[in-house]
């Protein structure tokens, strides 16, 4: 009944105009981040509680020629999402549409989503004490489906894309396009691949998909995405105990301490990137 949707970033077409970054902030009323100039066009080094999507811009020299690779980085809306598994209050949910939604009323800001995300996406806002991340404009997507896939209601970033690089539609359609584009790219780029299109890994793909000319690691994505190792600790030991013993808020505090102890902390800690 529910339609499964997906977004596809056709990386070769991206011009890094960053319309997507601004359209996201506009729709979600997100304030600007502090981004001191450090010699790069890429202004935001990472996502933050104020920035749900950014364009990674990587300049490299290969065979005496310069190459500039762009990638739209945001929540991957994983098939099996570490953040959903890790969330003690079910604030994070994998919807039938494929979107990993976030119910702010249920969120207690414990930060387990941050720790357990394969890609380091969610960030707990220091002031509101709520986790933040892209929800693929779930409000717009509902309108989009309801109105017969009316592009007027596409997620803000996809709708605003100037270069036909961010595509959005049913998952079926996006998978088809991704594979067609892969065939074209393969002729020019031997390492070309799709990302999150196939579901034969531990995160089972995602609703944010890519078609990439080069290996995922070139764009800062794990070549083999894995559910966070901390998750097994969490699922096996802490969550059952917590659920028996106490309410969610307390779980959060105790749990975070345990996880940090067991895993040696998270490289994606909860700072706000200010």
């Amino acid at each position: 009944m529910a339609v499964e949707i997906a977004m596809l970033h056709d990386v070769e077409k991206c011009s890094a105009c960053r319309g997507c970054s601004v359209a996201c902030k506009q729709w979600k009323n997100l304030p600007a981040d502090k981004t001191p100039f450090d010699g790069d066009y890429q202004s935001h080094k990472d996502l933050s509680s104020k920035t749900y999507t950014l364009i990674r811009m990587k300049e490299t020299m290969a065979d005496g020629k310069v190459r500039w690779d762009f990638l739209k980085f945001q929540c991957m809306h994983c098939g099996i999402a570490g953040c959903v598994l890790g969330c003690p209050t079910n604030a994070l949910q994998k919807e039938d549409t494929g979107i990993v939604s976030h119910n702010i009323d249920k969120c207690i800001g414990c930060g387990y989503c941050e720790i357990n995300c394969t890609f380091g996406v969610p960030h707990v806002d220091k002031e509101t004490k709520k986790s933040t991340k892209c929800n693929l404009c779930i409000d717009r997507v509902e309108k989009y489906i309801e109105n017969g896939y009316d592009r007027k209601y596409m997620p803000s970033c996809a709708k605003t894309c100037t270069a036909d690089a961010i595509l959005f539609g049913t998952r079926e359609e996006m998978v088809k396009i991704a594979n067609e584009r892969l065939a074209v790219l393969k002729e020019k780029y031997p390492d070309a691949c799709t990302y999150n299109v196939e579901t034969d890994n531990s995160i089972k793909g995602g609703a944010m998909m890519y078609v990439l000319p080069y290996r995922p690691s070139v764009y800062g994505l794990p070549d083999e995405p894995q559910l966070a190792p901390s998750l097994s600790v969490w699922k096996d030991k802490i969550q059952p105990a917590g659920k028996i013993l106490m309410g969610a808020a307390v779980v959060a505090v105790a749990g975070a301490a345990v996880v940090n102890t067991v895993t040696g902390g998270s490289k994606h800690g909860g700072d706000d990137h200010e």
Partner: peptide, 10 residues
């Protein structure tokens, strides 16, 4: 066709 660059979108 619905698109806007960073400037227009702001």
């Amino acid at each position: 066709e619905g698109g806007l660059c960073s400037k227009g979108a702001s």
